[in-house]
Design a protein around this nucleic acid. Structure first.
Length: 297
DNA sequence: ATCCAGGTACCCA
DNA sequence: TGGGTACATGGA
C-alpha cells in the first residue's frame, strides 16, 4: 500500500462522492476500500480524511485519474461568481445545497471508450441496472485479470460478436447500438483520440454519428470522458430540478410545453458558466436530497 | 403489479 | 426542427 497526503491545492476531494455519483459504474466498495480497474490494472483505494491509501497505480496516474490537479476551489468560486453575476448579486439555494452535500466530488478523467459504451448502456435505465449490465459485459468480453476482475472490453472485443450475444448481458435493445458503435470505432481506431482535440461542438457532432448516441449520451462522454466542463448532460433528474427550481428557465418554454433539451442545457451554461457541467453533476448527486416541491411537480 | 430509469431511432407533419 | 412512439430490462 502506498499513501498520498492530499496537499492543500488538491483539496477538497471526496472519494466516495466521486465514485458513487453516477459518472463511472465499475467501482465497488468493499469495507472501506474502493476497488476498480483502470486499463489493465486493479486498483484499491481508500480515503482517510486528507490521505489516500492505495495500490495498483502510480501517484501521477492517480492524480490524473481523479483530476486532483484541477483546483476545485477555483472551480466552485467561478460557478458562484457566475451565478451572482446572473442574478444581480442573488444566490442559488439549490446549487449551494448541492455544493455543500457534494463537496469534494470530482469529475474524473474516464477513458472515453469505456465512458461511451457505459452511457450507451445507461439509456432508459437506473444506476443499479447499468452497473450490473456493464459488469456482465466486462466479464463476458473483457480480458480476465486476477481475482475476478476484468479489463473493459476493447472495441474489437465487442465488435466481433453479434447483438444476440451481447443481448445476453441484459442490454435489451441497446445490444445493436453497442455492436454497431464498437464496429464503428474498431474501423477507425484513432477516432476517439482525435475527438479529444476538437472544439466541443465538432466533438459532439462526431459522437452523434455513433449508433445509439444521442444528445444525452454524447454530452456525458464529452463531460466525463473528455472533460469539457461546460457541457451539461440533461437527464430526467436534471430536467426536473432545473424546470421546477429555476422559474427563469421555465418561462422560456413555449406555450405550456416542456423545455427542450437545449433550452435546459443552454440555461445551465448561462447560469453556471464555463464549469456548468460540474454544477450539473453536483445537482445530479443531490437529486435525492432536495426539497420535495422540486422533486415532485 | 405498476411505474420508471443518466434516451435514441424512426416516422410524420 | 419538433412532437409522438416503440423499444428490453430490472429496480423500487
Amino acid at each position: 500500500m502506498k499513501s498520498l497526503l492530499i496537499s492543500q491545492q488538491f483539496l477538497p476531494f471526496d472519494l466516495d462522492q466521486t465514485l458513487s455519483c453516477g459518472q463511472v459504474f465499475r467501482w465497488k466498495k468493499n469495507e472501506s476500500y474502493w476497488n476498480g480497474v483502470i486499463k489493465d490494472c486493479i486498483i484499491s483505494i481508500r480515503q482517510e480524511e486528507q490521505t489516500l491509501v492505495y495500490e495498483g497505480i502510480e501517484e501521477q496516474e492517480l492524480i490524473q485519474y481523479f483530476n486532483l490537479d484541477l483546483n476545485l476551489k477555483d472551480v466552485m468560486n467561478a460557478i458562484r461568481t457566475t451565478i451572482q453575476h446572473n442574478t444581480g448579486g442573488g444566490s442559488d439555494p439549490l446549487f449551494e445545497r448541492a455544493e455543500e452535500t457534494g463537496r469534494g466530488l470530482r469529475i474524473i478523467r474516464q477513458d472515453p471508450w469505456e465512458c461511451l459504451i457505459s452511457f450507451i448502456c445507461s439509456q432508459n435505465s437506473n444506476i443499479p441496472s447499468i452497473k450490473k449490465r456493464i459488469e456482465l459485459i466486462c466479464s463476458r468480453y473483457g480480458s480476465r485479470l486476477q481475482g475476478g476482475y476484468y479489463q473493459f472490453p476493447t472495441p474489437h472485443d465487442l465488435a466481433c460478436h453479434d447483438s444476440d450475444s451481447i443481448r445476453e448481458c441484459s442490454t435489451g435493445y441497446r445490444a445493436s447500438y453497442l455492436v454497431d458503435t464498437a464496429g464503428y470505432v474498431a474501423r477507425d481506431p484513432d477516432l476517439l483520440n482525435r475527438i479529444a482535440f476538437l472544439p466541443v461542438e465538432k466533438a459532439r457532432q462526431e459522437l452523434l454519428n455513433l449508433p445509439g448516441v444521442g444528445p444525452k449520451v454524447a454530452d456525458c462522454v464529452l463531460l466525463f470522458g473528455y472533460n469539457f466542463y461546460e457541457v451539461v448532460p440533461v437527464d430526467v433528474w436534471i430536467r426536473t430540478i432545473m424546470t421546477n427550481g429555476y422559474p427563469d428557465l421555465r418561462s422560456r418554454a413555449c406555450n405550456r410545453k416542456e423545455c427542450s433539451y437545449s433550452q435546459i442545457a443552454d440555461f445551465c451554461r448561462e447560469h453556471f458558466g464555463q464549469y456548468a457541467g460540474y454544477a450539473q453533476q453536483l445537482l445530479f448527486a443531490s437529486r435525492h436530497n432536495i426539497p420535495e416541491e422540486i422533486q415532485t411537480v
